[in-house]
């Protein structure tokens, strides 16, 4: 924690309006971390790394979309070293645009196959650090109140009795919802997937902006059912809300939370140290201690008991390369806009 007097330096130096603050302190080794998971998890990771290596971590938390936009804006003079966390698609896009650095960690062999394939498909510019499957979060009180059955399959969600009870994010704004869109396309085929979504549209009460919003809305009873990543629903359950989380019976898609090294960042050595450390079992077990129940990518890391185990969930063989590419994404999103988003 900084002292107040240390902050007076800013006051003094604003006199020259457009001059950068000079930082006279002797430089210990440091790392600038862009973090795209919850605040709690981010600071726990930053502290854990400082404790393990003595390297000072300056952490900024932003959503993955925001971080990606920031990396693009800063590309000519990067200010960050590592981008840790957040759904894999923007990491893959950053890799595609050459915003991130190639690095093959010695830790790769200790990772789950899905984490390694994330690395291979990006030319080792990013790697998987956790995974989470898509599912439904439903409010038990609301369903009971309205005498509605518990939905267990994608096919259930388009039944007329759920009219006005379902929430999902807008894929134009949310990576979660784009994962859902891509999963449905892979599960049903493109035309059938859009037919399905048109029917689903009749039951949707709102397309939210953020991907985890449906889980929160379900927790507070603002909607009966939310379509979101299962760990977001688990977090609400642990937080004391009357919700349960279920994986759809037909199979479902998943995200691979990823990590990348920023190309041309100020501290490349510290960045690689972080990269290797973040793939260790100890580092990956930090998540569960701060109520984040994603599935870790290190084979040796303990899977938290609350986490929706990926073994019992029927996962589709999600093609991250194809559906993470800009061309496919743009085509699917503009079709969604035309056929679903513009409906009243």
């Amino acid at each position: 924690m900084k002292t107040i007097s240390g902050r007076l330096r800013l006051l003094a130096s604003t006199a020259a309006l457009a001059v950068t603050l000079s930082n006279g302190a002797a430089m210990a080794e440091s790392l600038v971390l862009y973090c795209s998971v919850g605040e709690e998890w981010c600071s726990a990771m930053a502290n854990g790394f400082s404790r393990a290596t003595g390297i000072d971590v300056a952490m900024t938390r932003k959503s993955s979309g925001e971080t990606y936009a920031q990396l693009k804006a800063e590309a000519s003079n990067p200010k960050g070293d590592v981008w840790w966390g957040g759904t894999g698609d923007p990491h893959l896009q950053a890799a595609e645009e050459g915003l991130t650095e190639e690095y093959t960690s010695p830790m790769l062999e200790k990772l789950q196959p899905w984490a390694v394939s994330q690395a291979t498909s990006s030319g080792n510019r990013t790697v998987g650090i956790y995974a989470g499957a898509l599912g439904f979060t439903y409010n038990t009180e609301v369903l009971e109140d309205k005498n509605l059955p518990v939905p267990s399959c994608w096919a259930d969600l388009i039944k007329p009795e759920y009219k006005g009870e379902i929430q999902i994010a807008n894929p134009n704004s949310s990576g979660t919802a784009y994962t859902a869109l891509a999963s449905l396309v892979q599960l049903l085929g493109e035309d059938a997937a859009f037919d399905y979504q048109k029917q689903l549209h009749n039951n949707i009460n709102q397309y939210t902006k953020s991907g985890s919003a449906p889980a929160k809305a379900a927790a507070r009873g603002e909607t009966g059912i939310g379509i979101n990543f299962m760990h977001d629903g688990v977090q609400q359950r642990v937080g004391g809300f009357p919700v349960k989380v279920i994986a759809p019976c037909e199979g479902t898609g998943y995200e691979i939370g990823s990590m990348s090294i920023v190309k041309g960042g100020p501290n490349p050595d510290a960045a690689r140290k972080w990269y290797d450390w973040a793939l260790t079992a100890e580092a990956q077990e930090i998540g569960a201690s701060v109520k984040s129940f994603q599935v870790p990518s290190n084979v040796g890391a303990k899977v938290p008991p609350e986490a929706p185990s990926l073994d019992t969930v029927k996962l589709i063989d999600y093609d991250f390369k194809e559906y993470g590419s800009s061309a496919t994404r743009q085509r699917l999103l503009s079709r969604w806009d035309d056929e679903i988003g513009s409906l009243n």
Binding site: S63, G65, E66, Y68, P90, S173, Q206, Y207, K209, R329
Partner: peptide, 24 residues
Amino acid sequence: PLVLGGNYDVLSTKIFFAVVGSQN
């Protein structure tokens, strides 16, 4: 509009998600 907008889109949220959303 972000929290309460529901399906009522306005320019400011549209711009935000054109920058940071999955459309980029």
